[in-house]
């Protein structure tokens, strides 16, 4: 805690608000492949940070490090000022505070939609089944598919599956939501309904760090856009700046391709 406050000051955070998630000079190598080479990034509470970058630039790796699905090779990651990259910290407790949704294979095919949504409430939070089901139904109602509560995930459309995965991730009220290209495996006409749900979460002041190739969404919904290039953050800033007047030539060249 103490060391963290020091570094907060040295980076001069405004008004003493602490970032919810902070990457501090994070490195990650796979064998001899250095994927992340010193990433420093703050995700402030109640903001949507969108990470963009070429395929293979390490966006997924960054998110997986934040969720402790990968161990960092160097540097530190803080959640609410606590060093979660410290191996002495209990990983399961940390993961409970962070929800994540992947590109595909999110839902458990051998459980009903409702059981998928309530799993963490029942098995991790320790809620009684009846209470968990009530909360689960409320979440399914919110995405308009409460009629599918008792069916298995393979009966849902891809867009419905991803929306269920999102509400499952937020069922036990995590402090942070990580979304890794959640629309990449979807047919184009299904992308909108999933992104609308993300917009709705933003309106409820959720904190979201997401990787996506949907630039128009990034432009309209992001508070901050982070451009990952060659293992470091090449440039970051609000969408107006990143799309309107980027400082770096590489940023302009990358974002231009999506206009």
């Amino acid at each position: 805690m103490i060391g963290v406050n020091d570094s907060n000051e040295s980076r001069g955070n405004f008004a003493g608000i602490q970032p919810l998630l902070r990457f501090e000079d994070v490195h990650k190598t796979f064998g001899r492949n250095a994927v992340l080479r010193g990433v420093t990034l703050d995700v402030m509470p109640h903001t949507v940070v969108v990470c963009v970058g070429a395929s293979g630039s390490g966006k997924s790796t960054l998110l997986r490090c934040a969720n402790l699905l990968e161990t960092v090779s160097d540097g530190r990651i803080f959640l609410n000022g606590e060093d979660i990259s410290d191996p002495r910290r209990d990983q399961d407790t940390v993961r409970r505070k962070i929800g994540i949704v992947f590109q595909s294979f999110n839902l458990f095919p051998h459980m009903t939609v409702l059981d998928n949504v309530t799993l963490s409430l029942r098995k991790v939070v320790g809620m009684r089944r009846i209470d968990a089901d009530a909360r689960g139904m409320e979440l399914l109602r919110r995405i308009g598919i409460e009629s599918k509560a008792r069916v298995y995930p393979d009966r849902l459309s891809g867009g419905q599956q991803q929306r269920v995965a999102i509400v499952r991730a937020i069922a036990s009220d995590p402090e942070l939501l990580l979304l890794d290209e959640i629309t990449s495996a979807l047919d184009p006409q299904l992308v909108g309904e999933v992104l609308d749900l993300v917009r709705e979460l933003k309106s409820t002041r959720a904190t979201i760090l997401m990787a996506t190739h949907e630039m128009s969404f990034a432009r309209s919904a992001a508070d901050e856009i982070v451009f990952l290039h060659n293992g470091v953050i090449e440039e970051s800033g609000p969408p107006e700046k990143m799309f309107g007047a980027p400082e770096k030539e590489t940023t302009r060249a990358f974002l231009e391709r999506f206009d």
Partner: peptide, 22 residues
Amino acid sequence: HPSQRAAARSLGLSHSQTMRII
């Protein structure tokens, strides 16, 4: 699929819960 395990762990399930339930 490895994502199934990752998804379970991300929900806060322990290693043995992930094995047993997922």
